[in-house]
Write a protein that binds this DNA or RNA. Structure first.
Length: 430
RNA sequence: GGAGGAAUGGCCGAGUGGUUGAAGGCGGCGGUCUUGAAAACCGCAAGGCCCGCAAGGGUCUCGGGGGUUCGAAUCCCUCUUCCUCCGCCA
């Protein structure tokens, strides 16, 4: 959520920076509603002040044994006036809140302005595709032939966009989870968290999924429970309504969770294989940082995610998203895109963002100001990124490490976790 | 599921209708003292919103919401969460 004051005092700046992110009308809607809200609020507050002064006079009169009937009478009248105005004050307040909660974050000035991914900026490349003498197959062909993933039985159990992993397929997923968590906790300094995979509305509001993106989420019936679409939601909200000490920052958390997404509106996109599923597993990285250090922390978090790709020997590129391609809550986002030789394209495998104070304001996560600045508090900056999406890492390994005979050699770093060197043509680990 | 109890500022904790936005302690920050530190002492410190160029003023907030009252942290209703005991269960 943006600061109301910024919208009020710097509307033109906001308008420019949100050029590719909102329909201009919403900013005017807010401005108009907010002006009405402030008008009524000023009036209500003046009346309340009057009532408070009258009450004090009643108290004084009673204490000195005088008759206060007139004062009480007048105060009753004021009370009635307040009640009348309060309703419209509340309505107007809800209205501005509703509009404000649908306005996305301001992109950082270094973010390229543009309507969509065509304006994204390539930052760097790493690795080269394996030089092979055959045409690489897509992972769904490899996986089904090896018998390590089963889409038909998954469809029977749940429907389309689900997968059942079997034998070495399941173990590879588990190996990736442990490998990523180990690297992030013992080498990158993250604290491992195992959060609930269900969250309430307030929590989803805090990170910006609600109210605007309810249609992307799975809601549980007859409850205020939602399946989490990413561990970002429980991890970031861990400190909702809290005031952190600057000495504790930055806080770095990591978690393995399944992620549940409706993927409504993506019909026809990525329909084959495990690229886009209603449930996928992910190791997430989340940081809480002071405003002064948050962009340095974004670089570190991104490189922590990159480190996983490097250790696994997966070629990738790093892209700075344009203002029109970024998510709703982000101020700056790097996407890491892994090379998939079977599909012949780069595919997002991690998205690392600094949300600045946008989520912190919604979730009310503050920090006390360091260095004797009169105990003032300010909002922390929140960051997160995938470290990495496990399903996509799984398929990237299949596609990048496939051999001519359809077997898959496992990357060195993963072998201790898989207890094997390869998935043989017969579909067994050995 | 049943029966009790509880929820106060960064933390602990006082406070049952009228200068209590809130005693006291701890923790934090600044200072005095000290070569430095500790101790001691002094001082400063809640958040949101509204009016204002500012200085400053106002208003709301004692788990959430509603109510009683001229006036509510204090009384009533309701919801949530936590604790204890019983039941059930992995």
């Amino acid at each position: 959520m943006l600061d109301r004051g910024v919208l009020r005092h710097d509307l033109e700046m906001v308008r420019q920076r949100l050029a590719h992110r909102v329909e201009p009308g919403i900013l005017d809607d807010f401005t108009a509603a907010d002006a009405r809200r402030r008008g009524v609020l000023t009036e209500v507050q003046a009346l309340r002040g009057r009532r408070n002064r009258l009450s004090k006079r009643v108290a004084m009169a009673k204490r000195s044994g005088m008759d206060a009937a007139d004062l009480v009478q007048e105060s009753r009248k004021v009370h009635a006036q307040i009640s009348e105005l309060e309703d419209s004050a509340r309505t107007l307040n809800d209205e501005t809140q509703r509009i404000l909660s649908q306005i996305p974050n301001l992109p950082h000035p270094n973010v390229p302005q543009g309507p969509d991914e065509s304006a994204n900026a390539l930052v760097s490349h790493w690795g080269e595709p394996a030089d092979v003498a055959f045409t690489p197959k897509p992972h769904w062909e490899l996986g089904v032939r090896l018998g390590i993933v089963d889409f038909e039985r998954a469809a029977k159990l749940a429907g389309s966009r689900f997968a059942v992993y079997t034998g070495p397929g399941a173990k590879l997923e588990r190996a990736l989870m442990n490998f990523m968590l180990d690297v992030h906790t013992s080498e990158h300094g993250y604290t491992e968290i195992l959060p609930p995979f269900i969250a309430n509305s307030r929590t989803l509001y805090g990170t910006g999924q609600l109210p605007k993106f309810a249609h992307d989420l799975f809601k549980l019936e007859e409850s205020d429970y939602w399946l989490v679409p990413t561990a970002e939601v429980p991890l970031t909200n861990l400190y909702a309504d809290e005031t952190l000490s600057p000495n504790d920052l930055p806080i770095s958390l990591t978690a393995f969770t399944p992620c549940f997404r409706r993927e409504a509106g993506s019909y026809g996109r990525d329909v084959r294989g495990v690229i886009r599923q209603h449930q996928f597993q992910k190791v997430e990285l989340v940081k809480f940082a002071s405003p002064e250090t948050s962009y340095g922390e974004l670089e570190r978090l991104t490189s922590d995610a990159e480190e996983i790709l490097r250790r696994l020997g997966l070629p990738y590129r790093k892209v700075l998203l344009s203002s029109g391609d970024m998510g709703f809550s982000a101020a700056m986002t790097y996407d890491l895109e892994v090379w998939l030789p079977g599909l012949g394209e780069f595919k997002e495998i991690s998205s690392c963002s600094n949300f600045e104070d946008f989520q912190a304001r919604r979730a009310r996560i503050r920090m006390r100001h360091p260095g004797g600045r009169r105990g003032k508090t300010e909002y922390v900056h929140t960051l997160n990124g995938s470290g990495l999406a496990i399903g996509r890492t799984w398929l990237a390994i299949l596609e990048n490490y496939q051999e001519a005979d359809g077997s898959v050699t496992l990357p060195e770093a993963l072998r201790p976790y898989a207890g094997a060197e390869r998935i043989a043509r017969s579909g067994v680990l050995e």
